[in-house]
Simulated scan of single mutants.
Amino acid sequence: MSIQTLQDLYIDQLQDLYSANRQSKKVTERLQQKAHNNDLQDALKRGVTGIDDGIEAVEGLLRQHKADPKGEFCQGMEGLVKEAKAHAIDADIADSDVRDASIISQYQRMTHYALAGYGTVVAYARRLGLEDDAKKLQVCLDNTYSGDREMSQLAEGGINRVAA
């Protein structure tokens, strides 16, 4: 796709976000399976649901704009997924509490990528006068922030202490 206008860039970034969400969902499901702490498992399960909601919202917006949701492959998330596998899922970590701390770290890295992506498309939608798009994307951004804060609370509220 040739990017000539802010509208073109907006569609490109939505496609990138769609790809990123699909990739992060798969690895988040695997992180949930590896998690030891019940609260962490529950938070990751909610994370998968939130990612699903984001996929649905972004896909719907892309279809409204007559764009193929699968028009882009997010290499940034691909790298973060590889890191999550290497440092949490497939890592040789004998202590399950230390693995939980690593799972949070890897999940938050992916979440921060999503925060940047959602923040960007919200700003573009507003600039383009696409207020309905911006409202839907703002919900996704707010939910992503909420999930990130929950992970920080889990880490600081006990998982890191137990891991230490």
Rank of each mutant, 00 (worst) to 15 (best):
F73D: 06
A101G: 07
V122M: 04
L154E: 05
A116N: 04
R109K: 09
D132K: 15
S105E: 11
H87Q: 10
G129N: 10
S146N: 15
S105L: 13
A134E: 08
L137C: 12
A116D: 05
Y113E: 08
T120L: 14
L115M: 03
E72G: 06
I103F: 04
A91C: 05
Y124T: 06
K70A: 11
M110N: 01
A114H: 07
D133F: 03
D148T: 13
L154M: 10
L141H: 13
G129M: 12
T111N: 14
R109D: 11
D142K: 12
M151S: 04
Q153I: 14
A91F: 04
T120M: 11
Y124K: 06
Q153T: 15
A123D: 06
V139K: 15
R126E: 12
N143D: 14
Y113G: 03
E131W: 11
V121R: 00
G147E: 00
A84M: 09
G147P: 02
R149W: 06
G79T: 11
V121T: 06
G79F: 14
G117Y: 00
Q138T: 11
M77E: 04
F73V: 13
I103R: 02
D95Q: 07
M110A: 12
M77A: 06
E83A: 05
D142M: 09
R127C: 08
D133T: 04
H112F: 01
Q153S: 14
D132Y: 14
A86K: 11
R149C: 03
V139C: 08
E72Y: 14
A116Q: 03
A86G: 06
S96F: 09
G71Y: 01
I104G: 01
A114T: 10
Y118M: 00
